[in-house]
Write a protein that binds this DNA or RNA. Structure first.
Lengths: 216, 216
DNA sequence: TCGGACAAGGGGAAATACCCCCTTTTTTGT
DNA sequence: ACAAAAAAGGGGGTATTTCCCCTTGTCCGA
């Protein structure tokens, strides 16, 4: 039956203007229909759990959303519904997040300034062939597998310390806040300086902001 | 003739998916037509200069764009075409930028997660009555006029110093970089701490990033 | 000629950065 | 199952940097 019925698409995006408009754009292509729209990952997952048998050919998933964001949603899908095909949509071309979305199973990653023609081709491609990657994304994948293998993994305590370090508290104050001796805090500091290749607390703050450990 | 012809709208947004989709949404309302779309302020202004007589009822202006952003475009419009009505569209509800867009003549400010119904009402309102402000924006305006009158103005040297302070250089190194005595730098530091109500260099870094003096 | 900005400096307390050291628990490899 | 190896927490001491207050001169515009 699939050959003569339209492909079923779901949109998950908190920008209502965008998601409703996008539905119209997709409709105008003629080959697809938007069966549902959700404004964050949470309500989308709720829907999937209540309707496990609903037929879905493609999911258009926004990366930046409140409540449950694109990456977390992607992780849930990888775990629970790896059968579903997802194209991630985003305004930013941040290396990290693109890699993460793809390693968690996204079949495509499009920026929102993509032209409607390419968008249409990507939808077609993913539904028919299973994937679609732009040059931007392919290039990034090649770069990443070649170079960035030494992954810096931060432990929970370190993250907490970094967040505190991004305030005007002194280390002593941070220590008492975290119920640890100032010496332990000094140990965290030193090992982080070493690990992150920085020399001052300023460097730590810049690192934290760049890697979205803290928000400004 | 205006009463029985559709209102003419222009969209300026670099997200092609959004802008093309939005055109469809606006068309679906029935009362409006999108006569042009541009992907940044620069090409839009070029168009205005070449077609100074084109009839435009409303401009939907994205705030975050490459080449020439929403605010700069708004300033140009205030200077050169104050007759044109603009609704600013944005994903972020940053106080500063909202205030700036409005003080530069925007007749409305909508977040992109606005519902299509409110969007439609806003368009209607601005074309007919001249303005439309959501509660978010009104509340912000009231807050701002009441509280934030003391403007913090930074001098060029101070800006340069702040940029250097947002690196791992010591104050001594900054001094030699700026060809000043460490003690002069110390003076800059102290007066800034005072002015910006901060207590540590960390606070200065956070301030600089928050106010986009430096970028991460 | 007064005030105010800018530049420079002295002295000192506090915080930060950088050493080398120790014990206890947890994890891991085989 | 057991030893080896990390990881987590704490300690002493020192050098450097940051932070703070207070003074001196100069130049410039009102």
């Amino acid at each position: 039956m699939k050959t003569n019925s339209k492909s079923k698409i779901i949109i998950v995006d908190d920008h209502l203007l965008f998601s409703q408009s996008l539905e119209l754009l997709i409709k105008s292509f003629g080959d697809y229909e938007v069966i549902e729209r959700f404004e964050n990952g949470k309500v989308f997952i709720d829907y999937l759990e209540e309707n496990p048998l609903s037929e879905i050919d493609l999911i258009l998933l926004d990366v930046n959303m409140p409540v449950l964001d694109g990456l977390s949603t992607m992780k849930w899908l990888k775990e629970n519904r790896p059968d579903l095909k997802v194209i991630a949509l985003s305004v930013n071309d941040d290396d990290e997040i693109i890699i993460k979305m793809i390693t968690n199973g996204a079949k495509g990653y499009l920026l929102k300034d993509t032209s409607p023609e390419i968008f249409r081709e990507a939808i077609h491609c993913v539904i028919e062939k299973g994937f679609y990657f732009t040059e931007l994304v392919s290039g990034m994948l090649i770069n990443k597998v070649n170079s960035d293998n030494r992954k810096i993994s931060l432990k929970e305590k370190e993250i907490v310390f970094i967040k505190h370090a991004c305030t005007e508290m002194t280390y002593k104050e941070i220590a008492s806040e975290m119920c640890l001796s100032p010496k332990t805090i000094d140990g965290y500091r030193e090992s982080l300086f070493d690990k992150l290749e920085i020399k001052t607390r300023i460097g730590l703050v810049l690192y934290a902001i760049k890697h979205k450990i803290v928000f400004v």
